[in-house]
């Protein structure tokens, strides 16, 4: 299998087969918190793709060129969470100063991402699966796109659900979970498409 094909499979796998939200259970808080409207879902998704990409770049480089030479790989959890936290902070400041337009649409979602387990999970997965640099980047974009896809689909469903006749006790989170379960069944159909 050539390297290019491998990358494509990795991308498709990250979007559909191993969808971060529906198959790996990562990033559920924003998934349920920001999926009430399609617009905010798209904004959140874009912010997540952006941060995931940057986080992959930085954590991969730090892991390869700092932690491995110093034999500190067992401390990766601490390093990664600090990198992600300061990264989000920096991106926010830079964006606010130089790209006010983009900041207006994405800025409010950025701080939410620090404590989003999808980003930390992604960086840890990159290391656990021993992806090389390019694979890590492809994986990060695929994971972000998969997250956005699940988020936007969910938002569409929840907008319709607002007018639906849902039993009182099931309103809000419970019905959102049941809906996510049904979506997850659909995504289960992708399982086995790409091994690994």
């Amino acid at each position: 299998m050539s390297y290019g094909v491998k990358l494509i499979l990795l991308f498709v796998g990250a979007v559909f087969v191993n969808n971060f939200v529906l198959m790996r259970f990562l990033g559920l808080c924003p998934y349920l918190g920001v999926s009430k409207q399609t617009d905010s879902a798209v904004g959140m998704g874009m912010a997540v793709i952006f941060v995931m990409f940057l986080a992959s770049v930085f954590t991969w480089l730090i892991y390869r060129f700092v932690l491995i030479p110093l034999d500190l790989t067992w401390m990766r959890t601490i390093f990664f969470i600090l990198v992600i936290a300061s990264l989000v902070q920096t991106v926010e400041i830079v964006m606010q100063k130089s790209m006010p337009g983009l900041y207006k649409s994405l800025g409010i979602y950025l701080p939410l991402i620090t404590t989003n387990c999808a980003v930390l999970g992604l960086t840890v997965l990159n290391i656990d699966k021993s992806y090389d640099f390019v694979e890590s980047l492809v994986h990060s974009v695929g994971a972000g796109v998969g997250f956005t896809l699940a988020l936007v689909l969910m938002a569409g469903l929840r907008e319709r659900m607002e007018v639906g006749n849902v039993p009182k006790a099931m309103r809000g989170l419970p019905i959102a979970f049941v809906t996510a379960g049904l979506m997850s069944i659909a995504f289960l159909g992708f399982a086995g498409l790409i091994p690994g």
């Binding site: 529906l22 198959m23 259970f25 039993p167 009182k168 006790a169 099931m170 309103r171 809000g172 989170l173 419970p174 019905i175 959102a176 979970f177 049941v178 996510a180 379960g181 049904l182 997850s184 069944i185 995504f187 289960l188």
Partner: peptide, 25 residues
């Protein structure tokens, strides 16, 4: 088997949250 798979997790917790909400109501 569905309950062991990913959808089972969502469905179980969804109905449990619903149950607790019902009890609260």
């Amino acid at each position: 088997t569905i309950l062991i798979l990913q959808p089972g997790a969502f469905l179980t917790i969804g109905f449990l949250l619903g149950f607790f909400a019902w009890r609260r109501n």
